[in-house]
Structures are given as C-alpha cells and as structure tokens.
Nucleic acid binder design. Sequence first.
DNA 1: CGCCAGGCCGTGT
DNA 2: ACACGGCATGGC
Length: 234
Amino acid sequence: MNQRRQLDASKRLRKMHEDLLRAYGPQHWWPAKTPFEVILGAYLTQNTAWKAVERSLENLRLAGALTPEGLRRIPLAKLRRLIRPSGFIMRKAPALKAFVALLYKEFGGSLEAMAAMPTAALRQRLLELPGVGDETADAILLYALGHAVPVADEYLRRIAERHGLVVLPAGRAKISYDDLADLTRRAFAGDAEESRAQLFNEFHALTVAVGKAHCGRAARCEGCPLAADLKSNS
DNA sequence: CGCCAGGCCGTGT
DNA sequence: ACACGGCATGGC
C-alpha cells in the first residue's frame, strides 16, 4: 500500500524530470569547473545565494586558493575575508580548512585518491567533517567525485510537497532527506547504471533551475512548468 | 527596510 | 525523532 504509493511517487519524480528537461533543456552543471572548485562551491552555497558564492570564488581565484595546495597555504583569517560575500564565515572557513586537512592527511592531497574510495564509506567520511551534512556530502560525491548518488535539496522537498508528488510516511510530519533521496534513486532505477550519475546530475540541476525561478520559500508557483501537476495530482 | 538564499549544528521537547 | 533558532553577508 505504502509501497505502491512510493512507486507512484518515483514515477512522478521521473515525469517531473522529463517535464523539466523539456522546459529548460540539459543543464550540464558544474563539470566545466575543476572538482575542487565544485567542492568549495558546495560548502559556500549552504543557505546562500549562488551570486554571492561566485564572488567568493573569484576572490579565492585571485588569491590563488582554488587548489588544494593554495587553500592549504592560506591563513584562516585571510580565508575568512575572501569568502565573506557568502556569509557564515566563522563556520565555513574552518570547515574548508578541515576538508583540505583530511584530503592531505588521508589521501595525500589527491581528489582522485579520495574519489577511489567506495561510495558508502566515503560518504560516511565526508559526513564526519564539520559543516558537511547530507546534501553537501552528496553534492561533493556526485559533482566533484563522480559517484552516482542523488542530491535532495530544499527545492526538491518544496516541489515534492507542493505538487503532491510524495506521500508522507505514516507517523512522519515531513519527508526526510533520506526518503527523498531514496525516491530519486527509484525514479531512475530503470535506467542503465552507466548513465545513473549523469541522470542524478541533470535531475538536481533541473530541480534548482525550476526552484530558483518558481519555488522559493515564499514563492507562488506561477509560471512553473510543473504547474499542471498541481491539479492532476491533487 | 525586510525577506531570503542550492544547509548545518546545537539545544530543547 | 522533530522543531527551532543562530549562524554572516549581500541581492533584490
């Protein structure tokens, strides 16, 4: 019963992906930049507008801190100043330092070596770092390290709830991160394994695209390409 | 001026 | 388990 409804939810997420792909086209997100820059962006964008992150990244670029070695050298106080535009500097600056420290301590400063770890163990490792929660860990795994994991962000939660795409498990007040991630996995379970990472990549990128445009905290869903589902699924 | 942004974490029920 | 507020800064 609940099982069947979850299957339906997965199908709705899959349909949402097709609808968004038709409306926005392929996003090919983040791969253009270096994996390390992707990681910095994943930290800096936490509860922060991407526009502000861009300025921080530019500051880091000018300071030569867009590489593990560059960031490792830079003093904490200077790092705080460089990332000031994206806020939460007292948390994010030490968090970035902690990541680089782990990278050197356990992987000789090599992201390739880090990426070679099995997905589950690596995810656990990342979650132990300060300032890394579910979403940041998954974003790093998917967009910087090439692991096929879904990323479930606040936009996806809002879209899923507002459009009635998911059914809340009995006894739960709201859909959890893990449940959303599982549903996303199921949504693409029928696709070839080799293309799974690319699909998760596009799905999250499209979610953010539509989320920014139509699904902010206080936003109404006017003009949203998914608006038709609001009626058909309720 | 007030709300909000591609979360995370400590604390309190 | 879950709610709630703080965290910093800047765009709109």
